[in-house]
């Protein structure tokens, strides 16, 4: 990715892509993230996408809209998207703003997200040890 190190990472996990946002992104970075993820979905023929937004400080109208559009584009390419890790106060402010994630599925965390996408895929091993498998 051309974001430079640290902002975002996209890992392939079986049929799924796991994209983690590691810090607050500005609008251009958000759009670049969207583009790169869509490209990678096509390249890897991914069937599911998990976007982990736990590190985002806010999800304002632009951020929420970008994620919605991303999920819609992914769907057109045959992949289902789950957004995980929306912090409680971020969720509250989205509601107050009158924003939602539309038809995009959300889940509490990575594990629940993977469970939603099929429940048979392995979680990434954080320290390079044995991957943890969900039943």
């Amino acid at each position: 990715m051309d974001e430079g190190p640290g902002l975002v990472s996209i890992l392939r996990q079986g049929d799924n892509l796991i994209a983690s946002i590691h810090t607050a992104l500005d609008d251009s970075e958000m759009v670049r993230f969207q583009r790169n993820l869509i490209e990678q979905i096509g390249r890897d023929r991914a069937r599911g996408v998990i976007i982990d937004v736990a590190a985002l400080d806010v999800l304002d109208s632009f951020g929420a809209r970008t994620l919605r559009t991303l999920a819609e584009m992914a769907r057109l390419r045959g992949a289902e998207t789950v957004i995980v890790g929306i912090q409680p106060d971020v969720a509250f402010s989205m509601v107050a703003l009158g924003l939602g994630t539309g038809t995009v599925h959300t889940a509490l965390d990575l594990e629940e997200g993977l469970a939603y996408l099929g429940g048979t895929h392995s979680l990434p091993a954080p320290d390079g040890t044995e991957p943890h498998f969900r039943p």
Binding site: D60, Q87, D89
Partner: peptide
């Protein structure tokens, strides 16, 4: 409160944009 901090940051984000 944490919630208010996020509301404030979000409002600033909107008007700055």
């Amino acid at each position: 409160s944490r919630t208010d901090l996020t509301l404030i940051a979000t409002a600033v984000s909107e008007i700055a944009r």
